[in-house]
Design a protein around this nucleic acid. Structure first.
Length: 291
DNA sequence: ACCGCACCCTGAGCGC
DNA sequence: TGCGCTCAGGGTGCGG
């Protein structure tokens, strides 16, 4: 679910909740591939650490801790990072939602999908990481420990340039859509914003990457930055699971031009938007506006 | 080096 | 009601 805009909105809103506070008792679910660092070690080593800041690299959140350690978080497809003060039906299972009158939602109760619960030494709110599909990741890095996951990321999508995309696309046989989704090329891109950027730039997602011109790469980089900046302004896209750390929905889902609009008319020319699988991901484009 | 695919996991929605 | 199928905003690791 979460792409760069959702991760950035999460970062901006969770930072004030965490920074300057000292971690207390940590609760986790059991061992699973969700935890790159074994949960028992997390519980042991996080307690007593003070949070110095929260940064973002592509779709990763990096929680800076005293002593030079840092906690790497990736939200995967259904990850939700939020304050225990947040209230949202998106944080509940369908059955829990149905059982609850809309006006009397009480405090969030950690469920089996809440894999990490950060409590602090003070009495302020907890920080919770919930992830139904467990495609998210948690890793604790020791001081100075390099992260191969971060190290292989390409240029941040908010800083991408046409030159870089053009250079990376030469001699590549994959579709331009797949190239843009490659995190070693553009870090932070995802299925929604890549489809949106391709539409704004007027480039068909299935076109071979090496056949995209330099001018089009420039348009793609600008379009990617434009849609992402706008999405951050509106609080990200809440399509199924995403909620901001305070429980509020984003607004960008209402500004989508092509993503998940298959069969609906193109907002520019009225031609039905087409949906097609490209590189194992569903892709949406206007056959008339995108060449 | 690159490419396509299977796989990791759970839940919602749909046709029958 | 229930079953089986498809789909979902992400990423890794494998063989060819």
């Amino acid at each position: 679910m979460p792409e760069l805009p959702e991760v950035e909105v999460t970062r901006r809103r969770i930072a004030p909740v965490m920074v300057g506070r000292t971690l207390g008792r940590i609760r986790t679910t059991g061992d699973s591939y969700f935890f790159l660092t074994p949960p028992a070690r997390l519980r042991r080593q996080l307690a007593g650490r003070r949070v110095g800041g929260v940064e973002r690299r592509g779709k990763y959140l990096v929680v800076l801790l005293d002593g030079g350690k840092c906690l790497l978080l990736h939200l995967g497809m259904t990850g939700q990072l939020f304050s225990s003060l947040a209230r949202s039906p998106r944080l509940l299972s369908a059955t829990a939602r149905a059982a609850l009158a809309p006006d009397r939602q009480t405090a969030f109760e950690p469920d089996e999908h809440t894999h990490l619960q950060l409590r602090f030494e003070d009495t302020g709110p907890d920080v919770l990481f919930r992830d139904v599909r467990k495609f998210g990741k948690v890793q604790l890095l020791a001081a100075g420990e390099p992260s191969e996951r971060l190290d292989k990321l390409g240029i941040d999508a908010l800083e991408s340039t046409g030159d870089e995309i053009f250079q990376a696309s030469r001699k590549r046989k994959v579709a331009i859509k797949s190239l843009l989704l490659d995190q070693t090329v553009v870090a932070g891109s995802g299925n929604i914003y890549t489809d949106e950027a391709l539409f704004l730039a007027g480039v068909r997602p299935g076109r071979g990457a090496s056949r995209v011109t330099h001018a089009e790469c420039v348009r793609l980089a600008e379009a990617m930055k434009q849609v992402m900046r706008r999405s951050i302004e509106t609080g990200g896209s809440s399509i199924s699971d995403y909620v901001a750390p305070d429980g509020s929905d984003g607004g960008y889902q209402d500004e989508r031009r092509v993503y998940a609009r298959g069969g609906e008319p193109c907002l520019s020319c009225g031609t039905p938007i087409r949906r097609k699988i490209i590189g194992q991901r569903s892709s949406h484009y206007c056959p008339r506006c995108q060449r």
